[in-house]
Design a protein around this nucleic acid. Structure first.
Length: 432
DNA sequence: TCTGGGGTCCTAGGACCC
DNA sequence: TCTGGGGTCCTAGGACCC
């Protein structure tokens, strides 16, 4: 009997952040390369060569032994660059497939139902992305999204051999060929579930599919029950073509060092969060602020507080008022903070706001915010700001410090940030 | 010296209401 | 003395994702 045709494909950029860096700096090709998260702290992406050296995602780079570190090329995460590369990939896929779900910065599901030779078309997409954007991808196919995800993992696992043999990495996963997939690699199975499943003798995706459904539902909840159903080849969901509105927008950072007065940082986070919120046409009904101590120095604590707003707002000034008030109420003199964040929560569509009878939104103020966003979009975030709001939330390269003026304490210093080749005029690559 | 930054959903328990 | 049951909302915590 022939297999039922796959309905979904997952096309996924291999070690995406590293591949983006390599696209613009070919000297990294074949060299162990890692991309570091905020403040050059942890490894968030590793090339296969870096993995072969024993580096792991999440490892703080300073813990890596000196002799290993010397062999590794390091870059600070440059999300503006990665986001732009991602958008180019999506453009290609939208030209080739009727329906595309942008699942994450490096993963896209596509609808392949009814296509005569889906494997061939996916290979063509892979080839175009490689040629036009420079990012190598793996492809998983399946009759459910969970199987397509599983296929993608299996494609990655076999990709070394496949590439070596001159074949491309594609895998059509079916309920009958997932016995080589470790259960912790199944979409929806994290560390905790994997640990509990192991105690039951469940080691592979096929083992999970074979458990009694009622048992999975009772012991692990509806989410894993759905995962199991999908592993069995029964779809529980379709592509999500439109991104649902965010429920909350959070901006938080680890500080570059312990900080006793985090107000400037929180105000900056709030400004950026409000900008993101307006960019999505949303308004906040409540504001949330929190601060953490430094558990690595035996100073672990967490303070947080939320305040509802009188009416949903899109105005940075309303947000800042709330944030300043909240911050003052939770900051105790003498405490040192290592991390903080601002959340805009209970978001509602800007157009559907419930106006409070006595305090309606002011259209003139909203136009002011529009002008601010347009100027910042055109000339860079922070060109125009309000009061004490800092002008960018990220860290800075040493060569940018002069432009930034007095370096705020909380900002991490990024030593290895690659230029924003595609999104900033003054950092375009030069071809002489 | 230096330890990521976002998100979502589900569940259980308490408060409250009728 | 004896003391229901069901619905909703909220919150905190825990699991997951990238």
């Amino acid at each position: 009997m022939s297999e039922p045709a796959p309905r979904f494909a997952l096309i996924d950029g291999n070690t995406f952040y590293v591949s983006c860096e390599r696209m613009w700096d070919p000297s990294l090709l074949g060299v162990p390369t890692v991309v570091l998260g905020n403040g050059d702290g942890c490894c968030i992406a590793l090339s296969p060569e870096a993995k072969a050296l024993g580096l792991k995602i999440g490892t703080p780079i300073f813990q890596v032994p000196e002799d290993i570190r010397k062999q590794v090329q390091v870059r600070s995460a440059n999300f503006a660059l990665y986001g732009d590369m991602s958008a180019r990939i999506v453009t290609i896929l939208r030209e080739m497939f009727p329906r595309v779900e942008v699942y994450s910065i490096d993963e896209n599901f596509v609808d392949i139902e009814g296509i005569a030779d889906p494997v061939a078309l996916c290979l063509e997409a892979r080839e175009r992305i490689l040629q036009w954007v420079g990012i190598p991808c793996c492809v998983g196919l399946g009759i459910t999204r969970t199987l397509a995800k599983a296929g993608n993992k299996l494609a990655k696992n076999q990709s070394k051999r496949a590439i070596h043999a001159g074949r491309l990495a594609v895998f059509h996963a079916t309920p009958d060929n997932i016995h080589n997939l470790p259960v912790e690699d199944v979409w929806g199975v994290g560390r905790q579930f994997a640990k509990r499943l192991a105690k039951e003798g469940v080691e592979t995706a096929a083992d999970l599919a074979a458990l009694p459904a009622e048992h999975v539902r009772a012991q692990y909840g509806v989410v894993l029950a759905r995962t199991q159903t999908e592993l069995r080849g029964i779809p529980c969901g379709d592509l999500e073509l439109e991104e649902p509105d965010r429920q909350q927008i959070i901006v938080s950072r680890m500080f570059g060092r312990d900080v006793t007065d985090p107000m400037d940082a929180l105000v900056t986070f709030a400004t950026v969060a409000a900008e993101k919120m307006r960019g999505r046409g949303l308004a906040a009904s409540a504001v949330w602020v929190w601060l953490d101590g430094n558990p690595h120095k035996g100073n672990g604590f967490h303070v947080s507080r939320t305040v509802p707003l009188p009416f949903p707002t899109q105005d940075t000034r309303d947000v800042l008022l709330a944030v300043r008030w909240l911050a003052k109420s939770i900051i105790k003199p003498g405490q040192a903070f290592k991390r903080g964040g601002v959340g805009l929560v209970d978001l509602v569509r800007g157009g559907q706001r419930q106006a409070d009878f006595f305090s309606a939104p002011d259209p003139r103020r909203e136009r002011g915010m529009e002008v601010l966003d347009r100027i910042n979009a055109k000339y860079g975030r922070g060109t125009l700001g309000l009061g004490a709001a800092g002008w960018r939330v990220g860290g800075v390269r040493p060569d940018q410090v002069k432009r930034h003026g007095g370096e705020a304490q909380w900002r991490p210093m990024l030593k290895s940030l690659s230029p924003s080749y595609t999104t900033k005029w003054d950092e375009l690559i030069r071809v002489r």
